[in-house]
Amino acid sequence: MSNVVDNIVKTWTNYHHLFIQGLGVTIVLSIITVIMGSIFGFLLMLLRRSRFNIFRFRPLNFIAATYIEIIRGTPMLLQLYFFYFLLPELLPFLDLSKVTCCVVAMCVNSAAYVSEVFRSGIEAVDKGQTEAARSLGLDSRQTMIHVVLPQAIKNVLPALCNEFIMMIKDTSLASTFFVGELMSVYRTVSGILFLTIEPLIIVGIIYFIVTFVLSKFVRLLEMKLTVA
């Protein structure tokens, strides 16, 4: 047992720069994913809510709903594989790096979840708010921008932060392709030292500290928003 502790200490002292670097990559990947996913997810939500129809059939709505169902109904690891192999095939002239392929896959995944976060955030705003705005003569776009969205943000912000926390953990799946995030670092260090458990514990502690601190922050944010 003391052997394990010794090894952990030794691993950390010798390779902490790698772990910290890996954490950096994890966080950067997560931030990019959540930001891009939010933008894409917002657009997806607009499609999902669009009233455009041809004889009552809403094509935009249908496309968005299908997309969301497929993404939520398949494993993210599968989606990573899919884009990892598909993108270079589709766009050989772009010479995409494997990190880019992984980021695209994660954004595609995140957008589906985030669009539902946006949708429920908007639908949680009391219908009376829309009615009041429309009764004043505002059109649906003005109502959305000036009345509904500012209120929806309050509902959405904590959920978006949670999505970010989820992403920090989910980026570990990208280690399948050695993109340099924390879990990839584990595989590297583990390979160098021929140790399995010790670096795993280090990586686990790092993940835990980051997500724990962030989730406490989200709780605080939630409390702030419900008071305001």
Partner: peptide, 26 residues
Amino acid sequence: RQKMGMVFQHFNVFPNLTVEGNITLA
């Protein structure tokens, strides 16, 4: 609708705007 004001049972004032902002928005 701009020429037809409406007042609702549940007020439906805009919580994201100040009292003044509620009035000046439209």
